[in-house]
Write a protein that binds this DNA or RNA. Structure first.
Length: 510
RNA sequence: GCCGCGUUGGUCAAGGGGUUAAGACGCCUCCCUUUCACGGAGGAAUCACGGGUUCGAAUCCCGUACGUGGUACCA
């Protein structure tokens, strides 16, 4: 049996969005589940849309997601090169071979001529022009022209393309791993361009040649490719490689949350959530679009969320690590229908992963985020302790800014919620607390709480009357973990300082 | 227009002839908590429609509707 080899083949034209990462993920899971290889190939034959830097960006995204390829432009392997632009000469050879065997032909029509005809037919009320069996005899190509005419044009370096010759009235059937048997009639498929006038192959030719040469066994791709599958299958056949054709799996689309259409790059901005794995800066426009990483997602959560969008293992389990996904994955359980992306659910996954993972897994990232917000958390032990007591209330990594900052920096106190009800006896109470806390030899949560409550009773103050003020003094606002937890982490000196500061603010008449 | 694929609560979904049609997110109520979360207990909400087949259909078949993709010298 052949070794399983699956490839992820993005085009370097922009940020890596949700659909792309999910395709990569399913490729990866399938490969790893079957002890196969996961291969990254760059589809860069459309030079007009090539974006500088996008290739490295793709690699970075895959790394962040934990989907490291076994072979790729930065890895190598036995079947490179991994960029289509570097394999250019191969494609022409196979295209010529198809012409020789009568399955393809040279076409000399210019894009303008075709467009003109298209317009004309449309004006006459015909449906869209298909460059195929119905019209190819009337067009300028090696089928309609004589051998001599064709040769003359070729010798004169007339710009031309090579098109596949599709015979009508044939039924192409193939088995899709997700959809089962799919049948299509060749009558409705046109003579696709295989090799462009600039010498570059189209996707149709390139994907077949590459998959063959790279010994790909299973081809996962988005559902948008389903309609062109017959062309590819015919190509495998006409090139004589039928027995080595990979098995196909057409993945369902990820759709916009608000209905119509597949999720696109601009939807994130419009609807307020990221669509890219990582921040993407378009060098052409200068636009910067934040990714899941920058918004505070853990890669574990991002991957988990994507995996559950269109697949599940049939149980109630929803939280999966990469290893668990690999173990549980099966193509048969991939849905055949598209799924709308739900950002709320995505955040829920992140929340679960923040709570599940040991703090050590993301402490460095949180430190970076805190730093960016001007919080210096130099003491790693303290930071770890802090993260552990606040992580339950953080949905995004960026939430740690609000939840953890006050442990490292005196808060800006908003006393407006307690000032109006402030009374002298409360001041007296806190003075007592300071005195008592100063005498404490240990600094434990339970002792702090016990002391606090005893003093309250002695001063005839209900804890509920002073607890909110205590929180404001320590935290600055009405959030965070339990006050005595906070105080115990803050330490004696800092706690007392903050009570003093708070008191002076509250007793200030202005 | 033509061709393909699809359709279970608002969203993700289990279920593939007999079920009180799971579960999760979100929403609502209550409990816990003198903050906010977590947690706990409840609640509202679903088989697109019409025909068949069958004793029996969410489940099988056929139509229709709707959604979605393709229909480029883009991928």
């Amino acid at each position: 049996m052949r070794k399983i080899r699956v490839r992820f083949a993005p085009s370097p034209t922009g940020g890596l969005h949700l659909g792309g990462v999910r395709t990569a993920l399913f490729n990866y899971l399938f490969a790893k589940k079957n002890n196969g290889d996961f291969i990254l190939r760059i589809e860069d034959t459309d030079q007009s849309r090539y974006v500088e830097g996008a290739e490295q960006y793709l690699i970075d995204c895959l790394n962040w997601c934990g989907l490291q390829p076994d072979e790729g432009p930065d890895k190598r392997g036995d079947y490179g090169p991994y960029r289509q632009s570097e394999r250019k000469d191969l494609y022409r050879r196979y295209a010529e071979q198809l012409v020789q065997s009568g399955h393809a032909y040279y076409a000399f029509d210019t894009p303008g001529e075709i467009e003109e005809l298209r317009e004309k037919l449309k004006a006459e009320g015909h449906s869209n022009l298909q460059y195929g069996f119905q019209v190819r005899d009337r067009m300028k190509n090696s089928l309609s022209l004589s051998q001599a005419e064709t040769n003359a044009l070729l010798q004169a370096n007339t710009p031309h393309v090579i098109r596949i010759k599709i015979n009508p009235h044939e039924t192409i059937s193939f088995e899709d791993m997700i959809r089962g048997y799919v049948h299509m009639d060749t009558t409705s498929v046109d003579d696709k361009v295989l090799l462009k006038a600039d010498g570059m192959p189209t996707y149709h030719l390139a994907v077949v040649v590459d998959d063959y040469l790279m010994k790909i066994t299973h081809a996962f791709r988005g559902e948008e490719w389903l309609p062109s599958a017959p062309v590819h299958i015919l190509l495998w056949k006409y090139l004589g490689w039928e027995n080595e054709m990979p098995q196909w799996a057409h993945l369902p689309l990820i759709l916009k949350p608000d209905g119509n259409g597949k999720l696109s790059k601009r939807d994130g901005e419009r609807l307020g959530f990221p669509v890219f794995a990582m921040q993407w800066k378009d060098p052409a426009t200068g636009d910067v679009l934040k990714g899941f990483k920058e918004l505070g997602f853990l890669p574990e959560a991002f991957i988990n969320m994507l995996a559950m969008l269109g697949w599940n293992d049939g149980t109630e389990k929803e939280i999966f690590s990469m290893q668990e996904l690999i173990h549980a994955f099966s193509v048969e359980r991939i849905h055949s229908s598209g799924a709308k992306f739900d950002y709320e659910k995505a955040k829920w996954f992140n929340h679960e992963w923040i709570r599940k993972l040991p703090v050590a897994n993301y402490i460095a990232e949180v430190k970076r985020i805190l730093n960016k917000h001007g919080i210096e958390a130099a003491d790693d032990d303290k930071l770890e302790k802090v993260l552990n007591i606040v992580k339950d209330r953080c949905t995004l990594l960026t939430d740690f800014v609000q939840q953890a900052s006050f442990f490292f920096k005196s808060p800006v106190i908003d006393i407006s919620s307690v000032k109006p009800k402030w009374e002298e006896k409360k001041s007296l109470f806190f003075i007592e607390v300071i005195r008592s806390y100063e005498l404490l030899n240990t600094w434990q949560h339970d002792d702090l709480e016990k002391d606090f409550k005893e003093i309250a009773a002695a001063n005839q103050v209900k804890p509920g009357e002073v607890l909110p003020a205590f929180r404001i003094m320590l935290v600055g606002g009405k959030y965070g973990p339990g006050v005595f937890d906070i105080a115990s982490v803050l330490g004696k000196e800092e706690t007392i300082t903050r009570i003093r500061n708070g008191l002076s603010l509250l007793n200030n008449p202005i």
